[in-house]
Design a protein around this nucleic acid. Sequence first.
DNA 1: GCTGTTCTATACCGATCGGTATGGAACGTC
DNA 2: GACGTTCCATACCGATCGGTATAGAACAGC
Lengths: 195, 195
Amino acid sequence: MGRPREFDADDALQTALELFWRKGYEGTSITDLTDGMGITKPSLYGTFGNKEELFRAALERYEQNYMAFFWKALEEPDARSVARNVLYGFADAQTCDCNPSGCLGINAAMGCSEAAEAVQKTIIERRTIGHKALTRRFERARREGDLPSDINPEDLARYILTVSQGTAVQAASGVGREEIYRLVDIAMRSWPGSN
Amino acid sequence: MGRPREFDADDALQTALELFWRKGYEGTSITDLTDGMGITKPSLYGTFGNKEELFRAALERYEQNYMAFFWKALEEPDARSVARNVLYGFADAQTCDCNPSGCLGINAAMGCSEAAEAVQKTIIERRTIGHKALTRRFERARREGDLPSDINPEDLARYILTVSQGTAVQAASGVGREEIYRLVDIAMRSWPGSN
DNA sequence: GCTGTTCTATACCGATCGGTATGGAACGTC
DNA sequence: GACGTTCCATACCGATCGGTATAGAACAGC
């Protein structure tokens, strides 16, 4: 029933995702989106609702397609491997030649006007979810004797994620993968009992 | 000669600095600025040139008034104290109740449109200057036997600055000073010979 | 008090922002 | 082949973007 759409909604969403990733939420205009996706404004609004809904769809796709390593890393047998895989997983995602540099969440949510507060809040919530999951994984490691009992799992998780957010800034400003790898090696030296 | 201006240019610049710090370069509109500074558009343009020049003036003031600790830290006698002072200095600046949260350079330069490319580039250059200065300080420390000779000063400097950029993201998303202090303590454990 | 200069207030500029109304083109169904 | 439905193209909407022209108000020097 009805005329079929002339574009692939999945391809279009992928393009929107990459644009938001590269230029942020407010830095990407509707014209940027329609030009990049190769569709017209009514098609965009008809298919994706509005700019904010499109961004949320892109964010969800981003998490499923590029942040899957994080949840996978939590299944590593020991806490040190979890931390390593998280750090290197972020480093890889942020410096892949086939992706924009840096992190979608950070590029999109920093320094935006009041109009983007809802989007900003959502991204901070997502970060909090990741922090809580990593904290729980480290709590388990401590119960299992995998981490010293004087370690605070919440602080350790925040440290790992903070380094990853820092590498996102580095990557966004053009620092390459090899440099970031070496930096992550140094970060891992802070691991309990490393030296 | 001529009518004297009815506002204090220094106060106005300070207000602009705080607005840019809080909402970024593109996230802060001219109306935000004039409203906050309590002046009209012609006064703003007459005094500061245009938005970009005003931002550059605010950035310079920011570095002089809020980033002075960094250059001071380089004068510490040993490399470990340098690193500690840099990390805690950033943490303090990013989480002071009297300032906006986070870092002006990061809030302003992440995820902006092509229109802000020149500003973005300037901020990245400033970061590079800081990285080079810290690298040279660590090179000196290595020569002085203050750091092991198998340490790469450039990578170590990048690690310290990356953690600080990560804490800027944390602070901007509402994480408090005490949490960031504890995270910095963990980061310092990666220091050569700490454990 | 006049003049020249500098500031401020208002109103305005074209461009772009996110979003939509309208009309015609392309389909599946009957 | 007419019909209802869906999609696309164009043109448009009010609001806001960064920036400015114009005109009057407030001063210093003479």
